[in-house]
Each structure stands twice: as structure tokens, then as C-alpha cells.
């Protein structure tokens, strides 16, 4: 008796089915690690912040609620993106699971893309759930404020007051702001994935990713301070230019401050900020792929 011919279908250079299998498996892995428990912490944080602001005016209350909620969303999605991504590759290598996957007809590009898409899906689910919690609490506070106004404000000023309350709660800036928070966390995940392609452990990857995150937040201030100095050398300028090129200015990748103070977010600003995020995500992923494709396993 001879071995049968392989039953697999003809090999495809790129197979969305294989990428989907890896992505959904990655999402399942992260979900079964019970990473969504942090949502309880998020809900407690924003409900708690609502109680402490009960003595403020409604504008101040909504401002603080948005500030705390969107700030917490930024931090939680960043943490989730970094921690979830940092363990993917080193763990697969350490457990030799990677060998069994790449010993199948799976190109390395598909493996890496599947892993990254799995993290992006996780971040999407997380930010959707947090947005849901945030909107429900914002709506509850708005109803509370509307009921108080109806009870306390004189009839001639009531309609104007109700309109002010509605304008201070929900506006069209919220969604673009949340999209940018998502893109920022995706960018940090892409950066962490890149670091994990040459790092030897998850801990190293996490530490490096946190350092780069901090550099990304302070680099603009540092650059301005150095360039303003009379003693700045050409070498320092070149170094700052390289840092600025490798790591985006993460302070510019947020619209939270504008949303909190009620500034209008123009389409141009949104597209510009989103493009910056998407460009860096693409670059980090591709560099990560080139490092990973040459990696000796």
C-alpha cells in the first residue's frame, strides 16, 4: 500500500482563509485569557467619576466624564494592545507551536498578518464595549441633567437650557475621537509586534514598547527644547530627526483634548491624524514582517 496523494487543495500564494483561521484563533486565545475583565475596572472608574462631580455644573460634569472616559479608553486599549501583542510571538516560539504552524503550507506573512488582525479584532471588541459603557453612562447623566433642568429652570429659559445640555453631551466629535483612540492603540500594537519579531521574551518586548511609547509622547517637547537651545549641534539635530522619523509624535495622535473642551474636529484634522496612524501601522507591520521572514527559528 502506498501513501495517498496529499488531500490539500492547490497551494495559494495568499489565502484569506488561512489568515482568518490564525486571526480568529488569536482572538479566541486572548478572549479565553479573560482579558475583558478590565472592562469592569473601566465601568467602575467612569461610574465613580460621575459621583464625584455631582456638585459641578452640568457642563463641567460632562467635561470630566468625557475626559476620564476617553482617557481611560486610551490607556486601557494601549495596555491591552501592548500586553496582548507582546506575548503572541515569543510564546509561540517558546512553546514550539510556531514550528507546527510554519511546517504547514503557511507563509510567514500570513502568520504575522493573522496574529496582528487577531489583536486588532480584540482591540475593536474592547473599544466597542467601552464605548457602549461610556455612552450608556453619558446618556444616563444627560437624562438626569434634563430632569433637573425641567424641575429647577424657569419656563422661559428652559428650552435654551435643555438644548445646552444636549449639545454638551452628545456631539459628532465623539466618534472620530474614538476612532483615533483605536488607531493609536493599533499603532502601539504594530510597534509591539515589530519589537517582538527580534525580542527574545515578552517582558523585553513590553519594556521596549513602554519606552518607545514614552519617547513618542515626550519627543515633540524634547525636540523643541533642544532645537531652541543655542548649543544644539548638527549631530543632535540628525539624531532628533531620526527619532522623529522612527517614532511618531504620539501627542499629535489624539483628539481627546479637543473633544473634552468642545472644539470642532474638522474632517481635514481627522483624516490627517488617521493617515498618520495608518501609515505608521503599515510601516511597522512591514518592517516586522521583513525581520520575521529572515528570522532563524
Amino acid at each position: 500500500m502506498t501513501a495517498a496523494a496529499p488531500i490539500a487543495t492547490k497551494h495559494k500564494i495568499f489565502s484569506p482563509a488561512r489568515v482568518t483561521a490564525i486571526a480568529s484563533n488569536t482572538l479566541l486565545e486572548l478572549v479565553r485569557l479573560k482579558v475583558f475583565y478590565f472592562l469592569l475596572l473601566f465601568a467602575l472608574l467612569i461610574i465613580g467619576s460621575s459621583f464625584f462631580t455631582s456638585k459641578f455644573t452640568f457642563q463641567e460634569q460632562f467635561q470630566v466624564l468625557k475626559d476620564v472616559s476617553l482617557g481611560a479608553m486610551s490607556i486601557f486599549t494601549w495596555l491591552l494592545g501592548v500586553l496582548a501583542t507582546a506575548m503572541l510571538l515569543p510564546k509561540d516560539i517558546e512553546d514550539r507551536t510556531l514550528y507546527t504552524i510554519l511546517a504547514k503550507p503557511v507563509p510567514r506573512f500570513e502568520y504575522l498578518l493573522g496574529k496582528f488582525l487577531g489583536v486588532l479584532l480584540l482591540l475593536f471588541v474592547a473599544i466597542s464595549l467601552m464605548t457602549g459603557v461610556f455612552l450608556v453612562i453619558l446618556y444616563a447623566r444627560q437624562q438626569d441633567a434634563l430632569a433637573n433642568a425641567a424641575r429647577l429652570v424657569p419656563a422661559q429659559a428652559l428650552q435654551e437650557q435643555l438644548a445646552d445640555i444636549r449639545a454638551a453631551t452628545f456631539n459628532k466629535n465623539l466618534l472620530p475621537g474614538i476612532v483615533i483612540i483605536y488607531l493609536k492603540s493599533a499603532l502601539c500594537a504594530a510597534l509591539t509586534l515589530l519589537l517582538s519579531t527580534f525580542a527574545s521574551s515578552s517582558i523585553f518586548t513590553i519594556i521596549m514598547s513602554v519606552i518607545v511609547y514614552l519617547i513618542g509622547h515626550i519627543q515633540a517637547i524634547a525636540r523643541e527644547a533642544y532645537l531652541a537651545s543655542q548649543t544644539t549641534t548638527a549631530l543632535t539635530k540628525a539624531f532628533l530627526a531620526i527619532v522623529a522619523l522612527l517614532i511618531p509624535d504620539l501627542n499629535s495622535l489624539t483628539l481627546v483634548d479637543d473633544i473634552v473642551v468642545g472644539n470642532a474636529i474638522s474632517t481635514v484634522l481627522f483624516v490627517k491624524t488617521a493617515s498618520l496612524g495608518l501609515t505608521y501601522i503599515g510601516i511597522y507591520f512591514l518592517v516586522g514582517y521583513f525581520v520575521f521572514s529572515a528570522k532563524e527559528l
Binding site: E29, R96, T97, T100, K104, V106
Partner: peptide, 21 residues
């Protein structure tokens, strides 16, 4: 080439597959 792996099955030493599956 990736295609050559259509014909191969591999069991590494001390494998740890995904424990949650």
C-alpha cells in the same frame, strides 16, 4: 518553498499546542 510543506507533517520535541483549544 511553502508549497513543499503540503507533503509534510511535523511533530516537534515537547510540543505545547494551544492549551485553550
Amino acid at each position: 518553498t511553502v508549497e513543499s510543506r503540503e507533503d509534510v507533517g511535523f511533530l516537534p520535541e515537547n510540543p505545547y499546542f494551544y492549551k485553550y483549544l
